[in-house]
Simulated scan of single mutants.
Amino acid sequence: MIEIRPANERGKANFGWLDSKHTFSFGSYYDPKHMGYSALRVINDDTVLPSQGFGTHGHKDMEIISFVTQGVIEHKDSMGNVQTLPKGEFQLMSAGKGVTHSEYNASSTDVLKFLQIWIEPDSTGGTPGYQQKDFGQQQGLTTVITPTGENGTLKIKQQATVSQLYLNAGTQQAVSNADNRKLYIHIVDGQLQLEGHTLTNGDGVKIADMSQLDLINNSEQSLVALVFDLP
Rank of each mutant, 00 (worst) to 15 (best):
E3W: 04
E3N: 03
I4R: 06
N8P: 04
A13V: 02
L18Y: 08
L18W: 08
D19I: 05
S20Q: 00
H22M: 02
T23C: 01
T23L: 05
T23I: 03
F26M: 01
G27Y: 14
S28F: 14
S28Q: 14
Y29A: 03
D31T: 07
P32Y: 05
K33F: 10
H34Y: 09
H34L: 12
H34A: 13
S38E: 10
L40K: 02
V42E: 00
N44K: 11
N44G: 03
D45C: 05
D46Q: 04
T47Y: 04
T47C: 12
V48T: 06
V48N: 06
L49T: 11
S51I: 03
Q52N: 09
F54T: 04
F54C: 04
H57C: 04
E63T: 06
I65R: 03
F67P: 03
Q70E: 13
G71N: 05
I73D: 02
E74A: 15
D77H: 02
S78N: 05
S78M: 04
V82K: 15
V82W: 09
T84C: 06
P86C: 07
G88C: 10
E89H: 13
E89D: 15
F90V: 08
L92S: 03
M93S: 00
S94E: 09
S94G: 12
G98C: 09
V99Q: 01
V99E: 03
T100E: 06
E103L: 06
A106W: 14
D110L: 11
F114D: 09
F114C: 00
L115F: 11
Q116H: 01
I117K: 03
I117A: 04
I119F: 06
I119Q: 00
I119A: 07
T124A: 13
T124P: 12
G126I: 08
Q132D: 11
K133Q: 00
D134R: 07
G136L: 07
Q137K: 14
G140P: 04
T143K: 15
T143E: 15
G152I: 05
L154G: 11
L154T: 13
K155L: 12
K155R: 12
Q158H: 03
A160S: 14
T161N: 13
T161W: 11
S163Y: 06
L167E: 09
A169L: 08
G170D: 00
Q172Y: 12
S176M: 14
A178W: 11
N180T: 05
N180Q: 00
K182Q: 10
H186A: 09
I187C: 11
V188W: 02
V188N: 01
D189Y: 13
D189K: 15
G190V: 02
Q191P: 11
L192H: 08
L192P: 04
L192W: 06
L192Q: 03
Q193V: 12
L194V: 12
H197T: 08
T198G: 02
L199Y: 02
T200V: 09
T200M: 10
D203G: 10
V205K: 14
K206M: 01
I207V: 04
I207T: 06
I207D: 05
D209Q: 14
S211E: 15
L213N: 13
N217Q: 07
N218E: 13
Q221W: 10
S222A: 15
S222T: 15
S222R: 13
L223D: 06
V224D: 14
A225S: 04
A225G: 08
V227M: 12
F228L: 03
L230F: 05
P231T: 02
P231R: 08
